[in-house]
Design a protein around this nucleic acid. Structure first.
Length: 306
DNA sequence: TAAAATACCTGCAGGC
DNA sequence: TGCCTGCAGGTATTTT
């Protein structure tokens, strides 16, 4: 399940693999993959031809490739060479993508056999490696939107993530305290803090010794700051490990799995001993998904509302 | 207005 | 072997 560390690994792969290249052809093989592109698959395919990718950016779990149309680069490149510097003359369009639960963005040689769930294929004018969007469960998708150099309009509501240098710790603590909900619901709300999904929410709450149903309005400021520190720690460690490939649905642009699954302390460890106190990790159904906690380290709040 | 519930979607595991 | 059910869960939409 791609969360912040996995998406950042993919972004870095795109930076290496497709930035500076010009799109020659796009093939949409499953219309659902471009359902958020309001003018349809045919327009999606046509609009990208000739566009040069100038940057690979990320906000939370969203990725986008900044685009420059022919003539938009302030220093047009020599044919056959990369345009340099890659600086569009104005804020151009963006190819916005979300991996959903099972999406993969692969940069592979054209001779690579089609993946079973290949949804979109991008080929480039240099004839080199293709970009492929592969997605088993089709929760992910791509669209062409405005705002490539800044922040695409459709994701203006997504908050910064805790690894963003401009993330505002004080605003997060204040925002958490102002809510009337449970801790995990708040951590999963991308308008408050982005990049956290089910796995890293459970890991951070375990590390902080807090139960997912604890009311956000009962948290002391020091506890909120401690939780934020644990969120940062787990995201950083996961990023260094190349992400978590819990069910093999997440891989990098080179098709490599992450290694953080080995380091998980709570998520997916039902019945296993807690790494702190040896109590058995328990699994609860919560928000139509699973939550994993240590019953000793993370006691359920009395009279918990969430 | 905020919070909670629901829909979307496919592959897989397990039970019968 | 084949069918059915439950589960995985991020986001947008709908309901409360």
């Amino acid at each position: 399940m791609p969360e912040l560390p996995e998406v950042e690994v993919v972004r870095r792969g795109l930076e290496r693999g497709v930035v500076g290249r010009t799109i020659a052809k796009v093939s949409v093989l499953h219309p659902r993959a471009v359902r958020r592109h309001v003018t349809g698959a045919a327009d999606f395919e046509a609009a990208l031809i000739g566009q040069t990718i100038t940057a690979a950016r990320r906000r939370g779990k969203y990725l986008w490739l900044a685009l420059a149309a022919p003539g938009d680069l302030d220093t047009p490149g020599v044919p056959g060479e990369l345009p340099a510097p890659l600086r569009p003359a104005e804020d151009g369009d963006a190819l916005l993508g979300h991996l959903g639960m099972s999406g993969q963005l692969l940069v592979v040689p054209p001779s690579t056999p089609d993946q079973t769930h290949l949804r979109i294929r991008f080929t480039f004018t240099d004839g080199g490696r293709e970009l492929r969007f592969v997605d088993q469960r089709t929760f992910g998708g791509m669209a062409i939107v405005a705002g490539g150099a800044s922040l695409p309009d459709p994701i203006a509501h997504i908050a910064r993530d805790p690894l963003d240098p401009l993330f505002d710790d004080d605003a997060f603590v204040a925002g958490l305290g102002a809510r009337r909900t449970g801790l995990k619901r708040a951590l999963l709300d991308q308008r408050l803090v982005s990049g956290i999904g089910n796995i890293y929410a459970d890991e951070a709450l375990w590390a902080a010794g807090l139960h997912y149903a604890r009311g956000t309005d009962t948290l002391r400021r020091s506890e909120a700051r401690g939780l934020l520190a644990e969120v940062r720690a787990v995201l950083t460690a996961a990023l260094e490990a190349g992400g978590t490939s819990f069910d093999q649905l997440y891989v990098s642009t080179e098709g490599v799995s992450g290694l953080f699954e080995r380091e998980l302390a709570a998520y997916g460890r039902e019945g296993a001993p807690c790494r702190r106190c040896a109590s058995q990790i328990r699994r609860d159904a919560f928000m139509n998904r699973s939550s994993f906690t240590c019953p000793t380290c993370q006691p359920r709040p009395r009279g918990g509302r969430w």
